[in-house]
Write a protein that binds this DNA or RNA. Sequence first.
DNA 1: TAGATTGTTAATCGATTAACAATC
DNA 2: TAGATTGTTAATCGATTAACAATC
Lengths: 226, 226
Amino acid sequence: MRSLVSENAVRRLPKYLRALKHLEESGAVRVSSAELGKLVGMTPSQIRQDLSSFGEFGIQGYGYNVTDLSQQIEIIMGTDRGHRAILVGCGGLGRSLIQNFSFEEQGVQLVAAFDMCEDLIGTKMNGVPVYSAKTLPEFLSCHEIDMAVLAVPKRSAKSVANQLIEYGIRAFWNFTNEDVISPYSDILVENVHFSDSLLSLSYYMAEKTDYETRMLHRMNKIAVVS
Amino acid sequence: MRSLVSENAVRRLPKYLRALKHLEESGAVRVSSAELGKLVGMTPSQIRQDLSSFGEFGIQGYGYNVTDLSQQIEIIMGTDRGHRAILVGCGGLGRSLIQNFSFEEQGVQLVAAFDMCEDLIGTKMNGVPVYSAKTLPEFLSCHEIDMAVLAVPKRSAKSVANQLIEYGIRAFWNFTNEDVISPYSDILVENVHFSDSLLSLSYYMAEKTDYETRMLHRMNKIAVVS
DNA sequence: TAGATTGTTAATCGATTAACAATC
DNA sequence: TAGATTGTTAATCGATTAACAATC
């Protein structure tokens, strides 16, 4: 199942959406691809190309209606699908997701959380009930769940994911910093690998430092020569 | 300052590194680009291309030494640079980063955290002292800090980031789900936008559902026809 | 109507893949 | 030496940008 639109385009839509919501808040009614482009740091062409791969949302000579486009993008992203999620692993990160991240804002319903820790079982976090991980198969057999948020420790990431797949889960939002699924599987996995992200930042910091150091040396040489 | 290597390549390195560490754990001494490729779901060509943009790490007819390559990638990613970081915002997510995420493993030293909440100030979290946000300018003027981890609420994201820039911060690891810096600035920002990530997953789930529904209809038609 | 801006086609650019000579 | 696999050059493919006719 090869997607019809480029992954790059899909991943740029949320950025457009954020800019549009800010525009909406600031009272803007219309926006051109040129304006939006300046806002998000992309070319007008790219924005028009990206949008046109999902439909026609603009009006010639006018631009885009901010509210309309914003809503259209939300629909494209599936926020109206009523996706239902469970969260597995109520450690520090899991807890902070339940308590601080607004799943509803992205159109996702977080219906339950699961953990091994006896102390947590039976409690509610931000309105979300916490059940024993042992009851997962039972729970999943009688509830329609579309997605699992994986927030278990690295070491159990793969085994938990595989179990969940057995119980019928077909999509993961994965916070374990581990690759949990074979790259050839058709299970959807969206990784939020903090460690990869920090490493990339670290790389660019190092690159920048090296570049600045080189520049400095070059300038010193020039100073000496002249 | 245009980077010399493609961003895609940079962002694939952490994935290679993870696979290599697993190989190392499992006792593997050598690995070919073909093997590594199968492991991470990429072509051998791509792996060789990516690596060759940073240097020559392999041996013809042999492949790569697992430990060597692993260490080389770590050096490329700057884990030996001793980058020093502060974390700003000790709410749920900030706290869970301090307590659960291993900065050291990525070669980053988390030297202090800052918050507004009186109750937290003066305490230590996982060995990291928590100071008052008011003391930030003073702290930054007498400590060499390379990076700020932004874990403040969305609404204060931009203002906090701008202040930190005034105080000399030039790199951000941004968890606020907000774009904090103009796309034309030369400040480094690595965004970890949970909301963008979840939206992308939601999109692919919706796309998959639509695709499967179409397939089902097609099969029904065939069934009726035949 | 004239001006603006879209959606889309064509041109360019960059990234991925394939091929192969070099060499362990 | 023969076989394997790299690093790199060339070919292909896809993504971005530019241009422009359509049209609000």
